[in-house]
Design a protein around this nucleic acid. Structure first.
Lengths: 187, 187
DNA sequence: ATCAGCATGTAAGCCGTTACATGATTAC
DNA sequence: GTAATCATGTAACGGCTTACATGCTGAT
């Protein structure tokens, strides 16, 4: 349990996201989007718990035309706690891909359906790579590493899919003579 | 909710894993390990629900020296349900990486700690790639695609990490003059 | 001897997501 | 007008993981 919602919030705070609203964006559209997720229902209780533990401070900030803000800042104790959590043994990556699982059963779908799935999937990763490009200027070394790897990872994964799809599609049409002959099977 | 535990079990059954025990292995060490996970607490209730719905059949099989087995088989209705679930709009991949998140805060760690994390991580993916190699012979096209992509994906990800780590490590030592000078900071 | 593997199942608990509640402003 | 953005928070629901219960065999 190294990375619970409290640790995640501490990290976001250290990275410069300083309200609950902003923290969510860090995990929704920001540099962490690929690797972790966190929603309001976890963030706000976590921030309150961190405040009670003295790991963060909070300054209420009135704004005109906008709702009041609670601006949080990580304390020295908070940074120590973050460091400690990060150095505990980390669990290995866990990828959940509905797409990959679904494609294992390509033989139950029509070739057209499979091709559409592959198109969407590869496009999704290419778009993700672009989204990751737009992040803050001059980040610390670790965050730069994270963003670069994310971009390159998404792109190479998309390419990998595109490279191997031909073999899959060929195998499928070979198994489905009607389609191979151009008859159309109610696709 | 396309891929709930019932759908996952139907898929494993279609892939030839035919007991609760075996299904777990399919998600623990088998071809699905990279993409989905499922534990006993989900599998056995799911199988019973599927049986009640007529989507699978069950034959009890006594064994000598081993506990009795319940051998399940997917029915035509089950295959139809699986196909239907797979064609519903699929959620996009979700990667959870404690490592990547942790590395975003490399500036809070010593260079030595960072290097050790990187070593372990890359090695983990190389080992995973090897594990994936050992799977069944003559799988359907989709499963072959899944395994190939998994192997290549793990390997290229490991290489990607190894390619970019030098820049990270250089940035870190540049920021930490004591280490750069070889003084040693209680690492 | 002791541990890992085979084999099925239950129950509790944790944690996160989802939906709801509130409300002003700006852009389309 | 209507939707999206900013902004904080609560409550319920759902589902998965973990731990427990049971028990025999074969390997170390």
């Amino acid at each position: 349990m190294p990375l619970d919602s409290k640790t995640l919030c501490l990290g976001a705070l250290d990275a410069g996201y300083n309200t609950g609203y902003d923290i969510r964006k860090a995990f929704e559209d920001g540099p962490f989007q690929l690797y972790q997720s966190l929603s309001y229902g976890s963030i706000y209780p976590a921030l309150n718990a961190l405040l009670a533990d003295g790991l963060v401070t909070c300054t209420e900030q009135a704004q005109d035309g906008r709702p009041d803000k609670k601006v949080y800042a990580i304390t020295e104790a908070g940074r120590t706690a973050l460091r400690a959590a990060l150095l505990q043994p980390l669990g290995f990556d866990r990828l959940r891909s509905e797409f990959m699982f679904a494609l294992a059963f390509a033989h139950l779908m029509s070739p057209g359906q499979v091709s559409r799935l592959l198109d969407d999937y590869a496009r999704g990763y290419r778009e993700l790579a672009e989204d990751l490009a737009c992040t803050d200027a001059d980040p610390p070394p670790g965050r730069r590493f994270l963003v670069r790897l994310g971009q390159e990872g998404c792109l190479t994964w998309a390419r990998c899919v595109e490279k191997h799809r031909a073999a899959l599609e060929a195998d499928l049409t070979a198994r489905d003579p009607a389609v191979a002959a151009g008859a159309g099977t109610g696709d």
